[in-house]
Write a protein that binds this DNA or RNA. Structure first.
Lengths: 115, 115
DNA sequence: CGCTTGGTTTGAAGTATGTCTAAGTAGCTC
DNA sequence: GAGCTACTTAGACATACTTCAAACCAAGCG
């Protein structure tokens, strides 16, 4: 736990985004700007142990396995999740730094309180 | 300024998003998941007075006025910005609550420190 | 090895998105 | 009102995205 103070504006509203930063961020945001992928991300992150098997995820949707696999690939390519095969199953987990980067864009700046 | 404490996970990684929440959020995220709209949002937010005239925005891009107008409409429809006509010009400003909602999704929870 | 189960890749089809041109609306000025 | 400037709407076109079925790879098991 760290004490912080809330400050003025979100970074996005503090100074104009450069063209290349905008392009970068848009890739990550596009990955997350889909109802299915949002739920996938959420299910992976909140699953016991912080990871989920593809089979768990596929069952939760009314979509075919290839479609889920496609969405997972989009999230993986965007650097938001990582996958690992263990035996028969493939497990995915969130990459917290990537998610935090998205949050930081839109969240008012915070600084550690001295003491 | 408010003192807060950082806690465990981002809301999205704490419990599975409902289907309808995911659909809602995806609309807002789609609006922001485009390099041009990201820069528009950023330019509006960081402009003097917290608002920007469409003419300022149009000049900053290598795109036609209708295209910029289209993107502004997408942001407006998503509830991220609001527009107001004053005389000849139309001014847009960010709706901070909407931006904060996006940030809160991906940012580790924080709670006010008592005292 | 051959079979089964778990996932991914490929290719195709329908839909949505980004961009432009052309035309329309709103307000100012003469 | 006529004309001008600032924006928006409408329509068209090319590209990208979502989804599925079919085929393919990987690992365990008879």
């Amino acid at each position: 736990m760290t004490a912080v103070t809330i400050q003025c504006c979100a970074p996005i509203a503090r100074e104009p985004l450069s063209e290349s930063d905008a392009a970068d961020l848009a890739v990550m945001l596009k990955a997350v700007a889909d109802p299915v992928r949002l739920r996938l991300l959420s299910m992976i992150g909140s699953h016991a142990g912080g990871e989920a098997c593809v089979c768990d995820l596929t069952d939760a949707f009314d979509l075919t396995a290839p479609t889920i696999s496609h969405h997972l690939k989009v999230l993986r390519t965007a650097g938001l999740i990582s996958g690992e095969r263990r035996g028969t199953w493939v497990y995915y987990r969130i990459i917290p730094e990537a998610v935090n980067r998205l949050g930081a864009l839109f969240t008012p700046l915070a600084e550690p309180v001295s003491a």
